[in-house]
Design a protein around this nucleic acid. Sequence first.
DNA 1: CTGAAAGCGCTTACAG
DNA 2: CTGAAAGCGCTTACAG
Lengths: 346, 346
Amino acid sequence: MNKKVSIKDIAQAVGVSTALVSYVLNNKEKEARVGKEIAQVIRDTAADLGYQPNQLAKSLKTGKSHTFGLIVADISNPFFANLARNVEDEAQKFNYTVLFASADESPKKSQNLINMLTERQVDGFIIAPAENSQNQIEALLKNNIPLVLIDRYFKGLETNYVVTNNYESAYNAVSHLIKVGHKHIGMIAYKTDLVHMLERKRGYIEALKDHKLLKAKTPLIKTVDFDFTQDDVEAAIKALKVQNPKMEAVFFATNTLTLKGLKALNNMNWKVPDDIAIVCFDESEAFDFFYSPLTYIEQPLLEMGRKAVQVLIKNISDKKSTHTQLSIPSKLIVRQSCGSDKAEVR
Amino acid sequence: MNKKVSIKDIAQAVGVSTALVSYVLNNKEKEARVGKEIAQVIRDTAADLGYQPNQLAKSLKTGKSHTFGLIVADISNPFFANLARNVEDEAQKFNYTVLFASADESPKKSQNLINMLTERQVDGFIIAPAENSQNQIEALLKNNIPLVLIDRYFKGLETNYVVTNNYESAYNAVSHLIKVGHKHIGMIAYKTDLVHMLERKRGYIEALKDHKLLKAKTPLIKTVDFDFTQDDVEAAIKALKVQNPKMEAVFFATNTLTLKGLKALNNMNWKVPDDIAIVCFDESEAFDFFYSPLTYIEQPLLEMGRKAVQVLIKNISDKKSTHTQLSIPSKLIVRQSCGSDKAEVR
DNA sequence: CTGAAAGCGCTTACAG
DNA sequence: CTGAAAGCGCTTACAG
């Protein structure tokens, strides 16, 4: 056997029209009031022939592909890989297939992927938008294509989104450092205007302000380019130390920044938490193995993945639905890198 | 604008047949000898209207979806996530889109995913096959569907595959332990009949044999179930130690086993490499941060991903092509967990 | 150089 | 209860 079997083959084998076969195989026998026996014969024949419906033809006819696109920055980043897995599982519950793609924070790649997926007739998108891709999102919106942003969003753009409560998470993490006794706290972020990063910075600044610890005119923040190296992070740390020689703690804004940062600290031979206390946004398997297990912000990956799918599917089935904007709380996991075992999880 | 623009809309706007539009937009003007001016008008109009071809319709007509399925055990496992990324990038070079899916080592899930992807008319598959899924692979083969196995394969099954040279890699790693002076070496694997694991075990055994270190009738190997916990691994390590109280080194067969294993060792308070030397198959970001940086086998992820795509695409374009079976060398990255800094990378 | 027409594999009013 | 027919958006021989 080589040629694929179609509805027509079944119709011929049974001796009925393709319409009947279609009705039966889609369980619309009652609506179409198909005979009970003939329905069974059709079913049996389909099974015998090993019939597998052609979803492409189905989609072309119905205008629904039961498919959506998930565009992330990089599927090999554990944050996105885990998110993707949760999205995959949730989508499956609704009988949706997800097409993954990595845009590498590049608006050009992002646009290419959106085009590619649109041409494949995805019913909607879940996107962790790259910087400077706001116009792409707006274009999708204008074309009335269902979508939900994830991890990041654009201020003032009316869309669905599902994100971690970045501001509060950062605020809490920095407040924890303060509570534990640190007064001179720096922050390392990467260069971007994306809201999630701005919110993390804002959380950092406000926490300091509220504790009367923001004295200098310029906050103790350094940013590195998106494709930073360990050396870049090391340079940033050193620059902070120059800016404020009393710096005793650093808040890292992402898991990748932290990973490079820890290597840089090892390289510089600064001990955690004695020479420098650490707290970081997002997690990594590696944090468990650092000699001073890290205190970190655990993002709600499972809930984010699930909600994103649910919101998208709601939007697909009801294109006029109002926007859903979710900012989900994280959890601060307190361990040893801030220099205190006594503080408890809040 | 809401309704999608089709080739028909362009044809009407320009005042030609849809055939012409199709030829021009597919750059087949010379074959069809379309007029130069009219071709330009068609192109301009297409651009003006924001035309995006419907790939589904195209695929339905041509019988090629320019799509393939990638089925792995779990996309959130860094090994597969990295592999997936390399596959994605390589596929894109050939203008292919990849549909990812996770089968969780379950033959039932695997079959569901294969069906789903087949119905979506993928042109081929790249599969890290689950245990007991051999019949599924055979079915695909019988239906003449292009496919390449990755990471694992089935002995005696005539298919394309691209894997790490598991036997040699394991052999080298264990030989390294021996060279460094260890005589009583255990191995922790997970329970499966999949070839990659059998090969790793065989490499371990042969290395010991060749060095006259395999004395006991039963080799010093313990296996845990696929969904093992840290406690399972700890129990396995202890059992090995009971079996041979002189055990001084352990070879872990995967990255996940190693991660749980290291936590178990910490929990038991065994020091690496003094109480126990370690070498492991596959890598993890975490290994860099363990107090005794791990010696590990670095798998050729980039080459595996690339080759798999290339072999698949060759098979798609030439269904009669002979099978390509690649076993790619790994690299042993020597660091401190085996108890010697002197040994160099081989 | 260009158009009419068939067909990919489905679904779904419509008619009987 | 069942069939004939149109049509989703394309491609591609075929005829002129």
